[in-house]
Simulated assay, not measured.
Amino acid sequence: MVGMFIGEHTFKVDGKGRVSIPADFRRELELGDPLASETGRPRMVIVYGPEKQQHLTVYTYEGYKALAGDIARLPRGSQKRKIMERMILNRARPTEVDNDGRLVLPQMLRDKIGLENTAYFAGLGETFEIWKPEVHEAQDEALDDRIFEEFGEDFDPLSLLDDLEG
């Protein structure tokens, strides 16, 4: 199942690290956890990744299990598998939505990305990211600059789908 985390949202983070999860994201998390209908508290996995990563990547429970399965299919002892195990499996934290539809971000995760009073949620289809808003804005502007430098000012992102043809 391909997720549909789309759009952007900004929410306040309280002193205990609680932040509301966008309602449409909560629905996707529910669809991605077979126990959610019983518990009412969908599970998810937050990957905080390498030291220099400036955001958190959030997977549905089933999406993360599928990713872990893909990693397990890599040859044992291979460099790719070791990197993926270290950056994706080891640097992850399972959690769940609380009864009020919020996510509690531990201090360690907030410190890692410099999150203070506000969290920016970026939907990316199968996953979503959580950023400090100012950091995301700077990264997004830099990406736009690189894209337009490479493809030109009249670049149409849909043109990248041309690679799927043929």
Results as ranks from 00 to 15, higher is better:
M4A: 06
D14G: 00
E150A: 15
H9K: 08
E129G: 10
R93Q: 14
E85K: 10
L160H: 09
E137V: 14
D33I: 02
E141M: 13
E137G: 12
S20T: 09
R93V: 13
M108F: 13
G69P: 05
R43I: 07
T95A: 14
E62T: 09
V135G: 09
G49E: 02
M1Q: 01
G152H: 10
R43H: 05
K80G: 08
L103E: 03
K132M: 06
D98W: 01
G32T: 01
I46L: 09
L74E: 06
A23W: 02
G40L: 03
E134T: 14
E8K: 08
D111P: 05
K82N: 11
A142Y: 09
G49S: 09
L161M: 12
M87C: 11
I88F: 14
Q53H: 04
A138K: 15
V47C: 11
K112L: 07
V45Q: 03
G101T: 08
M108K: 14
I46N: 03
G77W: 00
V135A: 15
A66D: 06
A92Q: 13
D24P: 09
Y64P: 04
I83W: 13
V19K: 00
D140Y: 14
F11G: 00
G32E: 01
E137Q: 15
E8T: 13
V2E: 00
I21N: 02
A36K: 02
A122Y: 11
E129A: 13
R93H: 12
P75H: 08
R81W: 05
L158V: 09
E38G: 04
V97K: 01
V104N: 15
T39D: 05
K12W: 01
R146C: 07
T57V: 13
R91S: 09
L115R: 02
P94T: 04
E85P: 05
P34I: 01
F148C: 07
D163A: 15
A36N: 02
R27I: 12
I6K: 10
L109P: 00
R27A: 14
E116H: 11
S78I: 04
S37L: 10
F151L: 10
K12Y: 00
R93F: 12
V45A: 01
D163K: 15
G3A: 04
L143Y: 13
W131S: 11
L164R: 00
V58T: 08
R41V: 01
L160R: 06
H9A: 12
A66M: 00
M84Q: 10
R81N: 08
S37D: 11
L103F: 07
S159E: 13
E165P: 02
N117T: 14
G40F: 06
T118K: 15
E62P: 06
G49T: 04
G123E: 11
W131C: 07
S20Y: 04
G3C: 05
K132V: 11
R110C: 02
A23P: 06
Q107V: 13
F148Y: 15
R102C: 00
A119L: 09
G32Y: 04
E51Q: 05
P50N: 07
D145I: 15
H55A: 08
D156T: 05
F155V: 03
P133N: 11
F25T: 04
A36R: 00
T95Q: 12
G166C: 05
E141N: 12
Q54D: 14
